[in-house]
Design a protein around this nucleic acid. Sequence first.
DNA 1: GTTAGCACTCATTTCTGTTGAGTGCTAACT
DNA 2: AGTTAGCACTCAACAGAAATGAGTGCTAAC
Lengths: 344, 344
Amino acid sequence: MSTLRLDERKYMILQAIIDDYITTAMPVGSRTISRKAGVSVSPATIRNEMSDLEELGYLDQPHTSAGRVPSVKAYRFYVDHLIKSVRLSNVEAERMHEHLNQRSSQVESVIRSAANVLSDATQYTSIIVAPKLGSLRIKHIQLVPVAEKTALMVIVTNAGIVKDAAISIPEGLDADHLYAISRMLTEKLADKPLEAVRQTFAELLRDAEINRRLLGEALNVIERKLEAGDSTDIVIGGSANLLAYPEYHDVGKAKSFLAALESRETIRKLVTRDGSMEINIRIGPENGVPELSDCSVVTAHYAVGDTSGGTLGIIGPIRMNYNRVISVLDFMGRTLSEVLADRV
Amino acid sequence: MSTLRLDERKYMILQAIIDDYITTAMPVGSRTISRKAGVSVSPATIRNEMSDLEELGYLDQPHTSAGRVPSVKAYRFYVDHLIKSVRLSNVEAERMHEHLNQRSSQVESVIRSAANVLSDATQYTSIIVAPKLGSLRIKHIQLVPVAEKTALMVIVTNAGIVKDAAISIPEGLDADHLYAISRMLTEKLADKPLEAVRQTFAELLRDAEINRRLLGEALNVIERKLEAGDSTDIVIGGSANLLAYPEYHDVGKAKSFLAALESRETIRKLVTRDGSMEINIRIGPENGVPELSDCSVVTAHYAVGDTSGGTLGIIGPIRMNYNRVISVLDFMGRTLSEVLADRV
DNA sequence: GTTAGCACTCATTTCTGTTGAGTGCTAACT
DNA sequence: AGTTAGCACTCAACAGAAATGAGTGCTAAC
C-alpha cells in the first residue's frame, strides 16, 4: 500500500467539507459533497477519499453512521493553505467606519464601541485590549492630595490615556511640595519613553534633596501602570452571541464559556500573541486555555501612532468562519489605527 | 360567602410555599407543605387554603395537576411582611471583608472586586455603580496638550476618582497658557461642589481676559462627567451565574438575559432607584425593563465619605433568596463604605 | 372546621418500533 | 487502477403508546 498523500482532489474535498461544516455544524456526508457544483464523482468515490482523509487525521467520525467532521488538524491546514481573503463589501466597511467615528474621541470609549462593532459584524465574541503603554511617552504627571496621608498620582500619556494610582505621602510634605514635585517630574519625564524614565529616576534618586520614599513609590507606580497594562484595559463585546450556536445549546458549556470570559487572567492569556504575525490564529486547544479548548481565537493588532498599539480579537467556536473573521479583523485593525492616530 | 382574608395560617402557608419554591423552583404541592415541621394539618386542609390563596391572587397554577407557584403579588407580600433579616456568619463576613481590603486602594479596582465578591456570595449577578460624582468636590484640574489642537482635561475629585476628556484647544494657546489656566481653574474650583462650580464659571466668563471658548467647553465637560455619571462606571459580576438556575436552562432565555446585560442603558435604568430607601426591591415587571421582566432586582447604597456614594445591586430570578440577598447587600454596602472611607 | 377517600388531570418518563442519513465492502465497469 | 452501483449494516433521532406519579377538586364522614 502506497503512502497516503494529500493530492489535489483531497484538498478540494477537505475544503468542501470544512466549508459545509462551518455553516451547518452538522457532520458532512458523502452525498452532500458529491452534489456540490464542481464535483463530478459519485458519493462512493468521495467515501473512499474521506476514508483516506480520516486515516490522515483530517477528519473525525462522531459515530459509524454519521458523516465526517473536520479535526483540529484540518482547520489548521485550512487556515494555513486554503484561506482566501474576502474583501468586505463597501457598504459594510462604511458602516463600521461610521460607528467608530461618531463616538467621543476618548480612547476608552472608542475601544468600547469597537468591541461592539466587532461582535456585531462577526456574531462571535470580541475582545479588545487597550494599547500597551510601554512604548508610549509620558506627557504629564500630577500628584494630588486626596486624604491625610494619601495622594493620587495621575499620569497622562501622549495617546491621551490617563492612569492613576494612590500613593502614600511621607511625613512633612504639604500640598505645595507635592505640586513642586509634580512640576519637576513632568519636566524631567515629559516625552521620555519608559526606558529613559527609569534612568532619569536613577539620577533623581542620587539627588539628596528629593524625598526618596516618594520617588521610589512613584517609579514603582509608573512601571506597574505603564508596563504591564493593568487589568482595567480589556473590553469584551457580544459575550452572549455564542449562545446562538448549536455547540452552546448545552447550558453547561455556555456557562463554563462565560465563566472563563469573566476572568481577566484567562483573557489576557488568550490574547497574548506569540509571533508578530499580522493575524494570529489559534484553533481549539492551541489557545492554551483548557476551559476554552473548544473555542478558536483569532487576534490582530492595531497601532496607536507608530510607537505602540494593542490587540483586537475574536473568540468563537472552532468551526468559525475564519475567512470572514480574518477579513473583519484586518479591516478593523486598520480602521482602529486610523481613528486613534490623531490622538497621539 | 364571607370575604376572604389573609389570616395567620394563610401567612404561614404562603411563606412555606415561597420558601420551598425559592429553593426548589418546582411547583409546590399540598403534601409538601403539610409534611413541614410546625404544620399539623392534612394536605386536604392545605389544599383548601391554597385554593383561597389562589383566589386572592397570591398563587398561580401552571396547570391543573401541578402544584402552586407564588405570584408576583406573593413575592411583594413576602418582602414587605415576611422578610426576616438574616445575619451573615462571622466567618463569611470576615472573608468578604478580606477580599475587599487586600486589593489595591484604587476605587475602580475596589469596585471590581466588590462585584466579584457580591456575585460569589449570592450566586446571582451583581451590579455596582461607581460613586455618583455630583456632590463630590474637585481637587485638581489639569489641561494637558496631547495633539496639535487637542488637550486632555483631567479632573481629580476628593474621592480619588479621575475623569478625563478630550477638549479642543483654541488658536493661539500654547502649553504654558494651558498650564496657567489649569492652575487658575484648580485654585478657583478646588473643594467646591458642583453647584458652586457653575457659579464660579459664570463669574469667570465675565472676565474678558480668559478664553471663553475654552472655558465653555471645560464647564461642559465637567458637568457631563461629574453630574450624569458616564458609561464607564458600571461593573457587572457573575453574569454567568444565572445559567445555573433551571429558569435559564432554555438557551433562548439565557441569551436574551445576557444580551440585556450588555446594554449600559438597560443597566442604568435598572439601578436607578425611586426612593431613598435603604434597600430597594423590584420584583419581576416592577423593574421596568420588559426584557428582564422575569428577573428581580435588589439594590442598596454605599457611601463615599458623607457627601456621596453609589449603588450596588443584585439581579436574579424572581424566586431569588431575598433574605440572603438583602443581608449580603446590607453588609456589603456598609463594608464598601468603610473601605472607601479613607479615600476621601 | 378538618380530613379521608376517590376520581380525574396532565407533565414526565420509558419503551418501542420506524425512519433515514450515512458508512463500508464487494463486484462490476471503464 | 481508478470509479461506481448495489447492498447489508449501523445508529441517532423521531414519534407514538403506555406507564408513572405528583397533584388537584370534590364529597361525605368525623
